[in-house]
């Protein structure tokens, strides 16, 4: 049994890896075509509003933008396969290094955000489901509705006003690397993490509540109850455990969303994440940087999906990775 599982997971991973490469190639093609299709000229925006036609031609040639687009594409894919994502149009920085620079901030925000979201949504979702139709259920549902409807921009400003301006407990904005200063990292990540976590938590609470209610209406739960099992055993062993699959799914989706960049939160908290990087890269039509960032986000998405798929099998032995 053990060897079957091991070999099946290896085969599963190999297949997924192959599939991921195909997806990434697709992403590359789409990203490349899209950035070139969008109106707006990177040379013009780099030069600003006062420049001579000479300066325009010179920079265009220096950036390689005067070459045929097909040639540009194959050149790009060729070096991308070796891990070289090119250099930024704007400052000549290697794209790979820039992305790696920004990754820790994005990962910090995603991990803290999703942990906060889970801390909120799991207890709240279970609580509401167990008390369906009662006041506490209504309270949870109304607050989660608030969480879903309040724009994260506004939520961030409110949190700054309360915790930074009024109470002075936490800094308004900025980021410190975990490796440089763990305490500083924590102090800076709490407010943006809370903003992201409250929004994701609200969505997840609603999801978890309905997942639990679905399971609770199943026949085997009624059977378990009629066998005279204590309510908490029924809840934990029969309901929660079986509701874990949809919970995992929604957690994965939320995590991937945050990893893909929460631009608004990053702007409000001056957080140096991938989202703002993509935003400024798009504004500047910095093609190599946009393509690199899209590729990185796609990789993160695929990784999260992979982990979620493996966790499915761990949580529910009936699911085999075949």
């Amino acid at each position: 049994m053990k060897t079957f599982f091991t070999s099946s997971i290896v085969r599963f991973l190999a297949r997924r890896l192959l599939y991921s490469l195909v997806v990434l190639l697709g992403v590359l093609i789409v990203a490349f075509s899209l950035v070139h299709l969008v109106p707006g000229d990177p040379v013009r925006i780099a030069l600003g509003t006062r420049y001579s036609p000479d300066a325009y031609q010179t920079l265009r040639a220096a950036s390689g933008l005067d070459r045929p687009i097909v040639e540009q594409f194959f050149g790009y894919v060729g070096s991308a396969l070796t891990g070289d994502l090119g250099v930024s149009f704007r400052n000549g920085d290697p794209v790979t290094l820039t992305l790696l620079d920004r990754l820790p901030a994005t990962l910090s925000l995603a991990v803290v955000g999703i942990v906060i979201a889970l801390l909120i949504s799991v207890p709240a979702g279970i609580w509401a489901a167990l008390r369906e139709g009662r006041i506490s259920d209504a309270v949870v549902r109304i607050s989660s509705q608030f969480g879903v409807s309040i724009p994260d921009f506004w939520m961030g400003l409110l949190l700054i006003a309360l915790f930074a301006s009024t109470l002075g407990w936490l800094p308004t904005s900025g980021y410190q690397a975990l490796s440089d200063n763990p305490a500083g990292w924590l102090r800076h990540v709490i407010l943006p993490g809370l903003t992201v976590g409250l929004v994701a938590g609200a969505i997840m609470t609603r999801y978890i509540r309905s997942a639990l209610l679905d399971v609770a209406s199943m026949g085997y739960v009624r059977t378990a109850r009629s066998k005279g099992l204590p309510p908490w055993v029924v809840t934990l062993r029969h309901i929660v455990r079986n509701a874990l699959i949809p919970v995992l799914t929604i957690t994965g989706i939320q995590l991937a969303t945050i990893l893909g960049g929460v631009i608004v939160v990053e702007v409000v908290f001056a957080w140096p994440g991938i989202g703002r990087l993509v935003y400024t890269a798009v504004a500047a039509r910095d093609y190599p940087l946009i393509q690199g960032a899209v590729l990185l986000i796609a990789v993160l998405f695929l990784l999260v999906n992979l982990v979620v798929d493996v966790l499915y099998a761990v949580v529910d032995p009936r699911i085999r990775l075949s």
């Binding site: 700054i160 006003a161 308004t172």
Partner: peptide
């Protein structure tokens, strides 16, 4: 700090 309200709070 791109958001002006945040800069002012800071």
């Amino acid at each position: 700090i791109p958001e002006a309200s945040t800069a002012l709070s800071a």
